[in-house]
Design a protein around this nucleic acid. Structure first.
Length: 885
RNA sequence: GGGACAUUAGCUCAGCUGGGAGAGCGCUACCCUUACAAGGUAGAUGUCGGCAGUUCGAUCCUGUCAUGUCCCACCA
């Protein structure tokens, strides 16, 4: 039936075929399984017009592995996809496009016209990333897919906003915000990146009015003196306290401003005198609030100086800075400039220097919400994996600043606040277009022009996607079944942006946590550990990797690198390595495929030693897989299955089966074939979450007629009945002996084809018995024509080379000349090594305190080791003496 | 300025509550052995960052120093 399998596995067609089968067969849709419980992961929605990058690939791999695992376990699973409108990113992209095409900005269009352009762009490129997610094998239910600007999320956003507004938790305020002059919008604190910049302290003299006293202030931003409305000193500072209440004269604009005392001023820092610019500095704004200072805004929206900039109106701050300094020098008020490295805020999207600026913005009062969000994690309602990331989460939420949610953009959720032009009433409305003012019933009113921060809708995402706030939709989409969702998988870089906000919003509107567990995965970097970036050109294109190595190999690589670490350094060569592993599986299958017809799908009754051993190893692997996937230790899962398949199954069990399968004993042959088939059925099951495609493909040859697709099949479980400890222990000795023979063969350059005679000496009756039972295996794998097994009291062959283990002496009798010096050298090396090991344990046994204090089982272990090493030493010494004489 | 995390084989990393240092890749040698050269067999490599302490015993615990990465914080 399957004789035509090619020597190497080619993934492309197989992957396409199976994804289509799964999707068209609706196998990603939630279905009640044997466990009466839902398991749901909401996929972090990527930017709608984005392109899949390595980070997304990791997102998908780790999430999809969990989903597939739980689906097989019999949970009703939902992997819910979606896309984000990504306000700033998308709008900027289209602005750039329009500019390149027609040298026009968005302000050359009406709001409606420009939004149309963005929608058109979205329609054209919007589906692209979802196709790429399919290529990765994401088993999400596309029927659930949502876009953050669809009608349903819009409804959710308005619902949430209006609720918060009516509860007084949303307010509008003239407040100092981070102003991005490129975006020409306010941005939230979380969107500001602080970068170290080489700047300077400029020392400037301010005259005190009606006196000769001069106050020297230090500032990094001399140009802002045009907006100064006070000079502040520390009230406890004896140097200056007597000046409090007097006036100072701001240079250049010659404005008289009060000298005030404020505890905030650090006597040690700078000159101890602080110029206060409430309009353009966060601290100064606070000082201004405390002291009722006037606020002067000296900047335009684009970051250039306005009329307060006097002769420098229209210049950027940076350009104005030098000119102001020059002017001060001219006026004799400039003292000196000191180099100074300081942190300057930059917009994380635009990279522009952020200008603190006072403007009217909408804020969410998050103080209480943050407390609840903190508590949920403190009480382990929501758990972080790895736990350490809780600190990051807490650090953000324990001292939250209110969240500036308004953005002066067009692309996004319009703030549902309306101002009546007749009666000045302001209200928030759940209707997209309210009919009339609720207070005066007039119909002349205007909606607030701003849109909401993208993270406002993202914060509601787990609820929105499950139908909230519409009762009917919630029922339809299974809100009660899937909320709180099971796991959130994401990178640490958006713990504040997203995780924290979802927690706050979730607790606020559903009175529940939005997810039980948060798995924070690593950041994918290049092989040298550098962040992938456009400018470095070191990005790895997932689709290219899939084309080259196959999605399974790529997924396995990502999974193998994912545990509780914070970086994955991705080297395409490693993907190649795991591609080879996938190919290995393919070929192992090719090996067993001819005997499948004589195999039964169930386990035979009278298992032999080898079969018990492999089943026991498989059982251990199954246990390890089940536990590690549950704990998000994909690295452990991958290494467990990798070494089982590669070492235990392929290198030993298949090799040991060749004899039997090529032999004449039909019954034994059928039995072995059945065990091979059993193992393989389990292997593809165990691997399916990581490598869904090849496993589903092979499953078609392994499944029973009545069984369906692997994607829905039961995940292998640990079985008490398949523990065979003795057989495992014996097999380890067997492997040690065979490897030793191979080693000895190589040490005297015996060709792989040539057969040798092997003599084994052991005093362990059980071990000897085992070797005798499995003598064919030794012959086959060590290429021996004859194997003699005797007790150590027997005479050793006179002309032979030898290696000693703790339990068995392995001799290769040789004819002709042996290079004894080589052998002596090698044995002496063995001797020193073993002696060292022995000395270590002997020392412990000689140590009275050790014998008295150590745990009994440790003492026993050490004693046993001592005995083993002693045995081994004796063997080596005897042989050395024999050689030397 | 505050904090977190890291430092283990050439590279990337794993090592659970302290009890003989591991994996993958790479490397070396020999092999086209009838599933697989995207393969097989065998092999080499570590003062577990430095120093001190606790302990019968420390890669693991404590302190300290060094180096690195990241996060937070109001740009005097």
């Amino acid at each position: 039936m399957t004789q035509e399998l090619s020597k190497t596995y080619s993934p492309t067609d197989v992957e396409k075929k199976w994804y289509k089968t799964w999707e068209e067969g609706k196998h990603f849709a939630p279905k009640k399984g044997k466990v009466d419980e839902g398991f749901c992961i909401i996929m972090p929605p990527p930017n709608v017009t984005g392109k899949l990058h390595a980070g997304h690939a990791l997102d998908i791999t780790t999430q999809d592995a969990l989903i597939r695992f739980k689906r097989m376990k019999g949970y009703e699973t939902l992997f819910l996809p979606g896309m984000d409108h990504a306000g700033i990113a998308t709008q900027s992209k289209v602005e750039e496009l329009v500019w390149n095409e027609s040298k026009k900005t968005r302000h050359d269009f009406t709001r409606e016209e420009f939004l149309e352009k963005i929608w058109a762009w979205k329609e054209e490129y919007g589906g692209f990333i979802a196709e790429q997610q399919r290529v990765m094998g994401a088993s999400c239910d596309w029927d659930y897919s949502m876009f953050t600007m669809d009608a349903e999320p819009n409804e959710a956003v308005r619902e949430a906003f209006v609720e918060l507004y009516n509860q007084g938790l949303i307010y509008q305020s003239d407040y100092i915000v981070n102003w991005d002059p490129v975006l020409q919008s306010a941005i939230s604190d979380a969107e500001v990146e602080h970068k170290e910049v080489q700047g300077a302290f400029y020392h400037i003299n301010y005259k005190v009015a009606d006196s000769d006293v001069i106050l020297e202030v230090a500032t990094t931003r001399p140009e802002t003196l045009l907006g100064d409305t006070a000079v502040a000193v520390n009230p406890n500072d004896e140097r200056f306290s007597h000046l409090i209440g007097k006036k100072a004269i701001v240079p250049i604009c010659n404005r008289e401003v009060p000298i005030i005392g404020d505890e905030h001023v650090d006597m040690e820092k700078g000159t101890g005198c602080l110029k206060v610019t409430p309009g353009h500095d966060f601290n100064d704004f606070e000082i201004g609030q405390r002291n009722n200072l006037e606020i002067i805004n000296i900047l335009n929206k684009d970051g250039t100086l306005n009329k307060h900039g006097l002769e420098w109106e229209g210049l950027t701050c940076k350009k104005a800075r030098n000119k102001v300094v020059a002017k001060l020098e001219e006026l004799g008020l400039f003292v000196k400039e000191e180099k100074h490295i300081h942190q300057v805020g930059h917009g994380d999207r635009s990279k522009a220097v952020i200008e603190p600026m006072v403007s009217k913005q909408w804020f969410v009062n998050v103080q209480d919400m943050a407390k609840e969000a903190v508590q949920a994690v403190e009480t382990d309602k929501t758990k972080f994996y790895p736990k350490g990331w809780e600190n990051t989460y807490f650090s953000w939420l324990r001292e939250p600043r209110n969240w500036c949610v308004s953005r002066q953009l067009w692309w996004g959720h319009r703030i549902p606040v309306f101002n009546c032009q007749s009666c000045d009433h302001q209200w928030a409305d759940k209707e997209v277009t309210p009919k009339s003012c609720p207070k005066c019933n007039e119909t002349k009113f205007e909606q607030d022009p701003d849109v909401l921060d993208t993270w406002f809708s993202s914060g509601l995402w787990p609820m929105t996607t499950l139908g909230w706030p519409n009762k009917e939709r919630m029922k339809e989409r299974g809100f009660d079944r899937f909320y709180p969702t099971s796991v959130l998988v994401t990178g640490f870089d958006i713990i504040f942006f997203w995780v924290a906000r979802m927690m706050m919003m979730g607790m606020k509107f559903s009175n529940e946590i939005p997810f039980h567990k948060v798995y924070i995965h690593a950041i994918v970097r290049d092989k040298q550990g550098r962040k992938m970036s456009k400018s470095l050109g070191n990005g790895i294109d997932p689709i290219e990797m899939v084309d080259t190595y196959g999605a399974d190999a790529f997924r396995f690589t990502l999974a193998a690198g994912s545990g509780y670490n914070r970086n994955i350094n991705l080297d395409p060569e490693r993907i190649g390595g795991y591609r080879n592993f996938i190919n290995k599986i393919w070929n192992a299958f090719r090996f067993i495929s001819p005997v499948l017809e004589v195999a039964s799908s169930d386990l035979p009754q009278n298992l032999d030693d080898q079969e018990k051993w492999i089943l026991s190893e498989l059982n251990d692997t199954t246990k390890a897989m089940n536990e590690s996937i549950e704990d998000f230790r994909y690295d452990d899962s991958c290494s467990a299955i990798y070494s089982f398949v590669y070492d235990s199954f392929c290198s030993w069990f298949i090799e040991l089966s060749k004899n039997i399968l090529n032999g004449d004993d039909e019954q034994k042959k059928a039995q072995r074939a059945s065990v091979l088939k059993y193992c393989f059925r389990e292997i593809v099951g165990l691997l399916h979450p990581m490598t869904p495609f090849i496993t589903e493909e092979l499953w078609t040859h392994l499944k029973k007629e009545e069984e369906g697709l692997l994607i829905n099949h039961d995940y292998p479980e640990f079985k008490e009945s398949l523990i065979y400890k003795d057989e495992q222990e014996m097999m380890n000795k067997f492997i040690e002996v065979v490897s030793s023979v191979r080693f000895l063969r190589q040490s005297v350059n015996i060709k792989p084809k040539d057969e040798v005679v092997v003599a084994l000496f052991t005093d362990e009756a059980e071990t000897a018995e085992y070797f005798k039972t499995n003598i064919d295996g030794i012959k086959e794998l060590a290429r021996a024509k004859d194997v003699q097994i005797t007790e150590k009291s027997a005479t050793r062959p006179s002309k032979a080379i030898m290696k000693a283990t703790t339990h068995t002496e392995i001799f290769l009798p040789l004819e002709g000349v042996i290079d004894l010096t080589e052998q002596v050298k090698r044995l002496e090396k063995d001797l020193t090594k073993t002696q060292k090991e022995y000395d270590k344990v002997a020392k412990k046994i000689g140590n009275e305190k050790f014998m008295a204090n150590a745990k009994p089982e440790v003492v026993e272990e050490v004693k046993a080791k001592a005995k083993d090493f002693e045995e081994q030493l004796k063997s080596i010494q005897e042989r050395l003496e024999a050689f030397k004489s």
